[in-house]
């Protein structure tokens, strides 16, 4: 199977869907002639032209709203945010319009749109460019949220998201764009709402999404080598819809759980999952539910401190050892 980057995997997903479906178009800042601020859309403008690949001015609210309006009419917009942090100037369009119009119209309208871009800290760009709003978005019924960790998942989930009848908020990560993995050629889709066991284990379950999955895998290897503890890593892939069965099945096997989350702790994705485990899987637990999240301050600029602010393998290991 070819080895390609996360960035190329996404690019292939766009090319597949642009070729397959005339109603798909890409829009955003620098996506066309510049080839994408992070080169995710490289080559697509040359191949598909200005009708399908569209550069916008720096007007997130306007082009997010344009996407919603076009999707109401049956087109399938894929709207790039250079950073998900920039969504905050267009939140009305995402929450009130993409999120609520179907409901407020009594189901007369659906909005098949993908909003995508990187949502991560860890690149020393300060708090305004380092937000991880998957928890904010997933708290809006009507929106779907996915966060792939690997090139394989990125391509398959993007194809599924573009074909979905509802708005999908697709959370990428600038630190993952260059990662390489095995990705099939051609088209395939990975359904939303299905988690993936990235590592089998018997002693503790790590539940994570996005880049935190890779940190969890690193911690799991070290725990095995140094302490003989076997950790299972559940990659959620999709936050909403959520594969709760995968979470409960893993906990029924290991009886211990650590939730790993690059969100801040207050009302983060892991807070919701912790509540569900407490309510629905309490009897399976031999130890308290623990969380490893981003440290609860705005994303710091200074490089060594920012590395500490996001979940690290060391922090995961320390937390996990307290369970045994």
């Amino acid at each position: 199977m070819p080895l390609i980057t996360y960035r190329t995997a996404l690019n292939q997903a766009f090319a597949e869907e642009l070729s397959r479906d005339e109603s798909v178009f890409l829009m955003g800042e620098e996506v066309a002639q510049y080839n994408g601020a992070y080169k995710v859309t490289e080559g697509l403008w040359e191949r598909f032209g200005s009708k399908r690949i569209i550069d916008t001015p720096i007007s997130e609210a306007a082009f997010l709203g344009l996407g919603v309006g076009a999707a109401m009419m049956g087109l399938r917009p894929v709207i790039e945010l250079m950073f998900w942090s920039f969504a905050y100037v267009g939140f009305d369009q995402i929450i009130n319009n993409a999120g609520c119009i179907r409901y407020m119209s009594g189901g007369l309208i659906n909005i098949p749109m993908v909003i995508r871009g990187p949502a991560n800290g860890g690149t020393s760009v300060g708090a305004t460019h380092s937000h991880t709003p998957e928890n904010l978005l997933a708290s809006t019924p009507g929106l779907k949220v996915v966060a792939p960790a690997t090139p394989y998942d990125a391509k398959g989930l993007m194809i599924a998201s573009i074909r979905d009848q509802d708005t999908v908020c697709f959370m990428e990560n600038t630190l993952l764009y260059g990662n390489i993995g095995e990705v099939p050629e051609g088209s395939y889709s990975i359904p939303l709402g299905v988690a993936d066991i990235k590592r089998e284990g018997t002693d503790v379950s790590f539940i994570a999404h996005g880049r935190a999955v890779l940190t969890a895998l690193e911690a799991a290897e070290m725990l095995q080598e140094e302490y003989g503890i076997s950790a299972e890593v559940v990659d959620l892939r999709s936050i909403r819809p959520l594969d709760e069965e995968a979470i409960f099945t893993s906990i029924a096997k290991t009886h211990r759980v650590v939730l790993i989350d690059e969100n801040k702790p207050f009302c983060g994705v892991s807070a919701q999952i912790a509540s569900m485990i407490a309510e629905q899987a309490f009897d399976e637990l031999d130890a308290p539910i623990l969380r490893v999240t981003a440290l609860d301050a705005p994303a710091i600029y200074s490089m060594p401190l920012e590395k500490l602010q996001l979940p690290t393998a060391e922090r995961i290991i320390q937390k996990t050892l307290t369970l045994f």
């Binding site: 178009f25 709203g65 344009l66 309006g69 917009p77 009130n96 407020m104 309208i109």
Partner: peptide
């Protein structure tokens, strides 16, 4: 008829999208 929108000016870019789809 595409609404009916509660937030002041929130519907304006949706109008762009309607026009965009017509032209597209």
């Amino acid at each position: 008829y595409w609404g009916g929108h509660g937030i002041v000016a929130g519907q304006v870019p949706l109008g762009l999208g309607l026009a965009f789809a017509l032209k597209y």
